[in-house]
Amino acid sequence: MTTVSSGASSPHLHQATSVALVMRRVLVALVPTLIAMFYCYGPGALMQWLWAILVAHAVEALMLRWRGLPLQPHLSDGSAAVTATLFALAMPPWAPWWLTVLGLVFALALVKHAYGGLGHNLFNPAMGGYVFLLLCFPVAMKAWAPIDAGHAAPGWIESLVRLAGGASSMADGYSGATVLEYTRTQLRAMKMLSEITAQPVYGMLGDRNAQWVNVAALLGGLWLLWTGVIRWQIPVAALAALFLTAAAFHLADGDRYASPLLHLFSGATMPGAFFIATDPITAPGTPRGRLVFGAAVGLLIYLIRTFGNYPDGVAFAVLIMNGAAPLIERHTQPRILGAPA
């Protein structure tokens, strides 16, 4: 193995950028989404996030110690904070504390460090941890918003009690369903889409709650695009593929297939397109590869939501395509200057 030390070779100038700066910008871009989560789901969302940050850094520090790596600069590179934030956004806001611990240990210890740590993981750690929980604790992972608008979101004290595991999350009205799941179960019960969408769980764009989270994620994502932290190919391809597929099905049978707008602004579409699918470590790096990757993610999101068994397909779609990313990159190498035509 060859090692070249920094500063030994040209260039002797460097852009003011660093891994920590990139991660910090991603975190800043996630602030609107966090605020939207707080607005829609109450203090539980914030507590869940704080808890995840704490746990993620503890796990990351332990793993670094175990691997014999210095805590500086690896712990402060911000990658654990980004993983924790994305993970917390995916978690139901009233999940008990141990669920978050389990998910983050899986995400960081197995999905990230077992593969070689930052930069070497094949799969997105946050989504890996989330899917692990989804498969092992399916009921607890459905503790989302109450389905009827009569319930107010739990307050600070109640959220804290729930996080501490003091109340069974599935015993009462909080074991609600998201609009995507509700739509699907109702459609399978042979109801018409027009009846279903009259329910109060629907908002202007999509899910009454998740639409605001999606709008916030869209804003944060646009800012990331503007600062150049992410590039346009993956989000544009993913959203376009999702929109076009949904539109085609919706036009063919508007009573059985939800509108493309609902798909764009429900579930984790926007966070997925701008923050999760764009994770550079687990996506192809070539421009054409990113288009292919994004389009496949968008298509898979629709297929899993509509025909699969899980309410939202973002995590699965991204993980499936993560596995295909090296292959996609290999077959989408750009044509170099001067290559034979």
Binding site: G7, S18, G119, R231, P280, T286
Partner: peptide, 26 residues
């Protein structure tokens, strides 16, 4: 120049984007 220790490659692909020969530098 404050030469920072190299961190692991996060595969961001910026090197590919700026390469004037379109090499996959990563």
């Amino acid at each position: 120049p404050a030469f920072l220790a190299a961190m692991p490659c996060i595969r961001c692909g910026e090197c590919l984007r700026v390469c004037p020969v379109q090499l996959n530098a990563r």
